[in-house]
Amino acid sequence: VTTYKLVINGKTLKGETTTKAVDAETAEKAFKQYANDNGVDGVWTYDDATKTFTVTEMV
């Protein structure tokens, strides 16, 4: 189990959260659900070296 981080660069919501998951795919599903629940829709990137997902909403 690995800890993954999500950085949110939203128009109205900004911040970070973490989740523990067995792999990046599982973490991504959890983060996308979290973003969807919070009304964040944007471009996703993932950095495997730092285990960090970033979602950026276009203005």
Rank of each mutant, 00 (worst) to 15 (best):
E28S: 06
E28D: 05
T3W: 10
D37P: 02
T54S: 06
G42Q: 02
D37C: 09
D48E: 14
D41M: 11
L13T: 09
K32D: 02
G39E: 06
T54H: 06
F31S: 01
E25M: 10
T18Y: 13
D48P: 11
A27L: 00
L13A: 08
Q33E: 09
T54E: 05
T19W: 07
Q33P: 02
N9F: 14
Y46N: 00
Y46A: 01
D37L: 12
D47F: 04
V43N: 08
K20P: 06
G10H: 06
T17H: 12
T2P: 08
G42C: 02
T19Y: 10
V1P: 13
V22S: 13
Y34T: 03
V40K: 02
K5M: 07
E57T: 08
E25H: 13
K5S: 07
V40E: 02
D47S: 05
T18V: 10
D47Y: 04
V7E: 04
E25S: 12
L13S: 06
V43Q: 08
T18S: 12
N38D: 03
Y46S: 01
T26E: 10
E25I: 12
A21I: 02
A27C: 02
E57P: 09
A30K: 15
N36C: 12
V22G: 11
G42D: 01
K32N: 04
A49D: 11
E28T: 04
A30R: 05
G39T: 04
M58H: 13
Y34W: 10
T18K: 07
F31A: 02
V22E: 08
D48T: 08
T50S: 09
A27N: 00
D23G: 04
D23V: 03
K20F: 13
T3V: 13
I8Y: 07
F53N: 00
V43W: 08
D37R: 09
F53D: 00
K5I: 13
V7T: 05
K51W: 05
K14C: 10
W44E: 00
M58W: 09
T17N: 06
T2D: 10
F31C: 03
Y34H: 04
V1H: 10
E28I: 09
Y46C: 01
K51E: 04
V43R: 08
L6E: 00
Y4V: 01
A21Y: 04
N9D: 11
I8V: 08
T56R: 04
G15Q: 14
T52N: 02
T45Q: 09
E28R: 12
E57S: 07
A30H: 14
L13Y: 10
T52I: 07
T3P: 04
W44M: 03
Y4N: 01
Y4D: 01
V1Y: 10
D47L: 04
K29T: 10
G15P: 04
E57R: 03
D37Y: 08
D48I: 10
T12Q: 08
K32L: 08
V22I: 14
I8Q: 02
K51G: 04
T18M: 12
V40M: 06
T45L: 07
Y4C: 01
V7C: 06
E16Q: 15
K20A: 15
F31G: 00
D47P: 00
W44T: 01
K11L: 13
V55K: 00
M58I: 14
T19R: 06
E28L: 15
V40C: 04
Y34D: 01
T56C: 06
T26G: 07
V55T: 02
T50F: 05
E16H: 10
D48H: 08
K20M: 15
T50D: 05
Y4P: 01
D41A: 12
F31D: 00
K20E: 15
Y46M: 02
N36D: 06
T2R: 08
D47W: 03
V22A: 11
E28W: 13
E16Y: 12
D23Y: 04
V40F: 10
A30T: 14
K14F: 12
T26H: 11
V43T: 11
T12H: 15
T12R: 08
V55H: 01
T45G: 06
V59T: 13
E25V: 11
E57W: 10
K51H: 15
A24Y: 13
Y4R: 00
A49G: 06
D23A: 04
K14R: 13
I8F: 07
T56P: 01
T26W: 06
L6R: 00
T45A: 09
N36V: 12
E57V: 07
E57G: 05
G42M: 03
V22F: 13
K32I: 07
D47Q: 05
F53P: 00
G10K: 05
E16N: 07
T3F: 07
V55I: 08
E16D: 06
T18A: 07
T45D: 08
K5N: 06
I8C: 04
K11Q: 11
K14Q: 10
T18D: 05
Y46E: 00
T3L: 14
L13Q: 09
K5A: 04
Y4H: 02
D41L: 10
Y46R: 02
T52W: 02
D47C: 09
T45W: 06
Y34L: 06
V7Q: 08
E16L: 10
T3I: 13
N36M: 13
D37W: 07
Y46W: 03
T2N: 12
V7L: 10
M58K: 10
K11T: 11
T2I: 13
A30N: 11
V55S: 02
N9H: 10
Q33G: 05
D37S: 11
A24R: 13
L13E: 07
T54K: 04
I8D: 01
G10E: 03
A21V: 04
T45E: 11
T19Q: 07
M58D: 13
T2H: 15
T52C: 05
K29Y: 08
A49V: 12
F53V: 01
T26C: 06
E16A: 09
F31H: 02
A24N: 06
D23R: 04
F31N: 00
G39V: 03
K51M: 07
G15E: 10
N36Q: 09
V59R: 09
A21P: 02
T26N: 08
T19G: 04
T18Q: 09
V40S: 02
T18H: 09
K20L: 15
D41V: 15
G39H: 09
N36I: 15
W44R: 00
F53T: 00
K11M: 10
V40Q: 03
A27R: 00
L6F: 05
F53S: 00
